[in-house]
Amino acid sequence: MNELELKYGCNPDQKPSRIFMRDGGELPVTVLNGRPGYINFLDALNAWQLVRELKEAIGLPAAASFKHVSPAGAAVGNPLTGVERQMFFVDADAPLSPIACAYIRARGADRLSSYGDWAALSDVCDEATALYLKQEVSDGIIAPGYTAGALEILKGKKKGNYSIVQIDPGYVPAPLERKDVFGVTFEQGRSAAKIDASLLENLVTKNRELPDAAKADLLLALITLRYTQSNSVCYVKDGQAIGVGAGQQSRIHCTRLAGNKADNWALRRHPKVLSLPFVDGIRRPDRDNAIDLYLSPDESGDVLADGAWQQVFRTRPEPLTPEERCAWLAAQSGVSCGSDAFFPFGDNVERAHRSGVQYIAQPGGSIRDDHVISTADRYNMVMAFTGLRLFHH
């Protein structure tokens, strides 16, 4: 099949809509269940590229959680710690495969943004991954294959309408890509530059000690940025994107947005958050919303107000004080940060430092590189100039 008719385009008034192969060849995707839409396929195909490239670069199963053509999270399949099982609502004794761990960690980067996501897996979807997805609000999944048990589980989601797409892992796209804007066709060569450890060799700071774990995290950040709507900045810790700032016109706003998300990720590990007394049977989205409100200084009063707390908590929890919040965040360290284009000012480094960033990868090339480097030196950071811009539009 070389064409698939879609319900509509980005919006219901945009008809007709389809995906097809210009050269008349076979589509590399097969719909196994549901009816994916235009935006679904944009998410699916971008997400698949990310996880395929991530597995190739790091050598571990990889997963991504996509929303509106940018990753809400991406991760590799490192085992979950006990705290992470609590954070991501996984039973302490639940058996997990590496690909299941990858998706759970990808979705756990920013659970609020992953609501209604498109999941992407580098490896065959197994029962452990499907069982976790079954409990989450998700629009669909793309993977190179599915076990029979996983397929049966996923087909039961959304009253049988959950979108399941299988992609040919051997598919190689044409070297030129095209798209139409306002009746004008744009053409460019595909972004094919290899992202590997060689990009991290040009260390420009006084501190040049870059551990292997940090190298892997920086590669994860750069690959995530390649498929994130620009401008974009990504924070990573232990094989998991913990904050993605996408689509901002200002670089510092990308850095702040990603940093704020990384801070929330760190605060969700706080003992007060892990012990929040949720009422029995509360839905996961309601729990995620309550945690987000609890951690937001300007909004926490809403969820703790008289009467309001009874809707989600068994007992009224103690608030996280500003002093506790600052102390917890000040203890964060070992975070890696990537940027899809150069940092024009040292303020980006200053903001990254506040979220525990110690390692940075960015293209370099600003007329103020000396100021950016000196700011990194002030905090004993390690910074690599990759020479590779990663804009994605």
Results as ranks from 00 to 15, higher is better:
T30G: 09
V204S: 11
M21I: 09
K55N: 12
D93V: 11
D217L: 01
P173H: 07
Q240Y: 04
H253I: 12
V181F: 10
D298E: 15
A305V: 10
G243V: 04
T224W: 01
R316E: 12
L54Y: 01
F89Q: 11
G243K: 00
G170F: 11
Y38P: 12
S336D: 09
P98V: 07
L218N: 07
R283I: 14
I164W: 03
S333T: 07
S198K: 08
D91N: 06
C125D: 12
D292Q: 13
L274P: 09
P79S: 07
S374R: 13
E127M: 07
A148T: 10
D340V: 13
D238G: 12
G259E: 05
T129I: 01
F41L: 10
M21G: 05
E177T: 15
T205H: 03
V165C: 07
G245Y: 01
L220W: 02
I291P: 05
F89C: 06
S296W: 11
W265L: 10
L295C: 07
K206R: 14
T255G: 08
L274V: 09
V165G: 03
L293G: 09
P144M: 03
E3A: 12
M21C: 14
V90Q: 13
T205L: 10
N33Y: 06
G245P: 00
T228Q: 00
A75V: 02
Q166C: 12
C326M: 15
I252F: 13
P277Y: 10
P285Y: 09
Y132L: 06
K15N: 15
E187Q: 14
S275W: 12
L176P: 13
R22V: 15
L225W: 01
V69E: 11
C101R: 04
Y235V: 15
G73V: 02
L112C: 02
N231T: 08
Y379I: 06
Y171C: 02
Q229V: 09
